[in-house]
Design a protein around this nucleic acid. Structure first.
Lengths: 146, 146
DNA sequence: TGATTAAAGGACATTAGGCTCTTATATATG
DNA sequence: CATATATAAGAGCCTAATGTCCTTTAATCA
């Protein structure tokens, strides 16, 4: 696959928080992990990264937990790919050539470039908010399903 | 990355053989590994798989080595993807849902499906022969470059 | 202030892919 | 047949991703 498990867990986590949070309520890692059947401690680490990157806020102590940052719903999903997987994959050559580009292309260079741009576009245009709206009704069932 | 290192090594190896072999001459693993700067023993394992799958022929002993099977140049590259990486990646959900499909889609299902088909098409249409022709002149330099 | 709660962080276990090395085993040729 | 050559096959190592555990830090409330 071309995205890590971390990415999948993180996206599901973020969308779950988006659905469940309200003014008073923050969402705890325990709840997310249980509801989404995701390894709790591992998810915790990933959430930390995302907090550092600014897409989530977190507070400790009673009634603490995670919530979305103000702009997160308007943020393209590519930012999460960047956090969990990095952007290298979108420029790396399939054949593992260090120097593969338009001037010095590998035998699959142009084909792959097209496919990569295609993928990149998906993640650059879709925001977290879009994903929520697209699957309004069944979102919770969808996130939990596995 | 989208594809394993094994795939990259294997494709480069196959194309190298295509260029270097002739009626009498088979190409040895040692030569391929040296010229392409690829780990020799690891490449050996991958070549084995490819022989089993029928895209290459191998003979042991003096003047032995690898050569292309009769139909290999007319074979789409997807067959190599299948051998080295498997086809699962084309049906697996990005979010790691076991059951993600048109009826029960994850929030990225339709977008990813379109991109995957696009990607699949690249490898299903291009044959090894096409790749050779596309990069006629600089093919050897191209394969070695890394 | 002390007890409780939840995230942060360090340290370690597990697994899979990538890679190396050694020992068979098959073949051609003298 | 014996020997040299070259692939086949299998055991084992290394590293990075994944996953677990335990301690520390911070926030809240009694």
């Amino acid at each position: 696959m071309f995205l890590s498990k971390s990415f999948g867990y993180a996206l599901r986590g973020i969308l779950y928080i988006a659905v469940m949070q309200d003014e008073q309520r923050k969402v705890q890692i325990d709840e997310i992990a249980t509801k989404l059947s995701v390894p709790k401690h591992f998810l915790g680490k990933i959430m930390q990264q995302i907090v550092k990157a600014g897409l989530l806020k977190s507070t400790k102590g009673p009634y603490g937990g995670f919530s979305l940052a103000a702009e997160t719903l308007n943020t393209p999903v590519i930012q999460l790919v960047e956090i969990t997987d990095g952007m290298e994959q979108f420029s790396m050559c399939v054949l593992n050539f260090k120097y593969c580009n338009g001037l010095n292309p590998c035998p699959l260079h142009y084909e792959m470039e097209a496919a990569r741009i295609n993928y990149l576009n998906i993640f650059s245009k879709k925001t977290f908010g879009d994903l929520l709206n697209d699957s309004k009704s069944g979102i919770l069932k969808s996130l939990a399903a596995n």
